[in-house]
Design a protein around this nucleic acid. Structure first.
Length: 451
RNA sequence: GUGGGUGUAGCUCAGUCGGUAGAGCACCUGGUUGUGGUCCAGGGGGUCGCGGGUUCAAGUCCCGUCACUCACCCCA
């Protein structure tokens, strides 16, 4: 077979699916900018030693290698190796340090770029994928309001997308860490790592691990599981936490932070977005220090489609530290499975709103004139490629989802435009006719799955 | 990296005991010479993933290999 085969983990969309993806990306960008977040783009490659900091040692990094590299380059120090970034947070940290003198803090930035991970691909897990991140980075300090703000922006961004609803689960690292310290756990980090797997492996497995590896007794494990079982869409979770009778300075601090985050997010709820305080959310990464997020879509099972949190030291150069809080949205992870199942798509595969028909080759210049007049008023228009019979030209439009076919005036006839969905055909003037606003550009279609 | 599954038309798949390569959908043409979708008739399209082996004969059996895919790990 001469036809190339697909590359596992490197998804590519057909034009219609790409149109849907573009519409989603445009929507995200518009929302982020509406909140005053600026865009940055960082280079695709970072020095390998930079990538492997931040407790990300387990990441499968794609290395960059020059085909024509001289042999003695192989002897170069390991630190000079380049790798493709596997997220947008590590590059942000590097960027902030590199440009700290020229940036204004707090820095509110969004970043929509490809990332690469060498792990085995599966549904919803890719080797090349697009991520949309928003972060707020401070200089030495960062207000607690930043946590609320990124929550608000992402809530709005998700609410606007014509996609399945998202639940954002929120917790606070200080709260659970303080709780574990309060019950006498000696290695709270180990407890966090174990609790993070609760939904995956279940309470029995967690109990065994907590006993064996974190050295907790049965009573302590009971209280950990009781804490992790707490979940509420409003600040009422605080009473449940207090009822467990544990006290610790960090616990109190985290509790009030989480209450505040949940309270200020109450008004963000919509049909497509809900926020829940869920004390089983821990996040495995150890650099999170406060609020942690994990977003789920019911269509994606246990896979989280967005994640993030606060880190007291996103970056540090010895003199200054740069605390940050942010959320990453897995654009490819959300879209690729939904597109593959036919749940999400676009109502057309080309941007064209109008196809101008060509009666005969002699009439082509007249058809071009009509197209120019429509384009001059911002209506995406293409001219039929061949002067074949009109039935075939209409079919050309139909196949691509182009909603209108324009029949230019000829000797004895007037200009007419046909809505090929309804079949309605009316007289029209190229300098004045305008389609309904909704027909102007491709739109994302969302069809709920028959379950 | 570990373990399972699957590779046949553009897509989804069938192919019996080893005996001439199939269906549905899609595509093209015509019915319909300036108006699509429905319907009817016809048509094109295959190195059966690749390599080797057994056999008179292999899509089918054996070995190898590659790709895809699912699960574990980890994560958007």
């Amino acid at each position: 077979m001469n036809r190339p085969t697909p590359l596992s983990g490197f998804p590519e969309f057909l034009p219609g699916a790409r149109a849907a993806e573009l519409a989603v990306l445009d929507s995200l960008r518009a929302t982020f900018e509406l909140h005053g977040f600026c865009s940055i783009e960082t280079r695709s490659a970072e020095p390998l030693d930079q990538l492997l900091r931040k407790g990300e040692t387990s990441q499968e990094v794609y290395l960059l290698r020059r085909l024509q590299a001289a042999t003695d380059d192989l002897g170069a120090p390991a630190g000079s190796d380049l790798g493709l970034h596997f997220d947008l947070t590590v590059p942000l940290a590097r960027y902030v340090l590199e440009h700290s003198g020229a940036l204004h803090f707090p820095l509110r930035r969004y970043q929509i770029q490809r990332c690469w991970r060498g792990e085995r691909p599966q549904e919803g897990r890719y080797r090349e994928f697009t991520q949309a991140d928003i972060d707020i980075v401070g200089h030495d300090e960062l207000s607690k309001d930043a946590d609320v703000e990124v929550t608000e922006v992402m809530a709005e961004a998700l609410s606007r997308l014509p996609l399945p609803p998202v639940t954002l689960l929120v917790n606070n690292r200080k709260l659970i860490q303080g709780f574990y310290l309060g019950i006498g756990a000696t290695d709270p980090a180990a407890v966090i790592r174990t609790i993070d797997k609760l939904t995956k492996v279940g309470p029995d497995a967690v109990r065994r691990t907590l006993t064996a590896e974190a050295g907790l007794d049965d009573a302590q494990v009971d209280r950990c599981l009781a804490l992790a079982a707490i979940s509420a869409p409003d600040p009422s979770f605080a009473q449940q936490v207090l009822a467990l009778g544990v006290s610790h300075r960090l616990l109190d601090e985290g509790l009030s932070e989480l209450v505040r985050a949940v309270e200020s997010a109450m008004h963000l709820r919509s049909e497509r977005f809900s926020l829940v305080a869920d004390l089983s959310i821990a996040r495995g990464l150890d650099y999170y220090t406060g609020t942690v997020f994990e977003g789920r879509m019911a269509t994606h099972g246990d896979l989280s489609i967005c994640a993030g949190g606060r880190y007291d030291a996103l970056a540090t150069d010895g003199r200054s530290t740069y605390p940050g809080v942010g959320i990453s949205l897995g654009v490819t992870r959300i879209l690729a499975p939904l597109i593959a199942r036919g749940v999400v798509g676009a109502d057309r595969s080309v941007p064209s709103c109008v196809l101008v028909a060509v009666a005969t080759d002699d009439h082509r210049s007249g058809s071009r004139e009509v197209a120019r007049a429509l384009r001059a008023r911002g209506i995406p228009t293409e001219v039929a490629p061949d002067a074949v019979r009109f039935g075939k030209q209409i079919r050309h439009a139909d196949r691509r989802g182009i909603p209108y076919v324009w029949f230019p005036a000829t000797a004895g006839t007037t200009h007419q435009v046909k809505d090929i969905r309804s079949g309605d055909q009316v007289d029209a003037d190229p300098d004045h006719w305008r389609p309904p606003h909704d027909d102007l550009h491709p739109r994302v279609t969302y069809r709920e799955e028959p379950t």
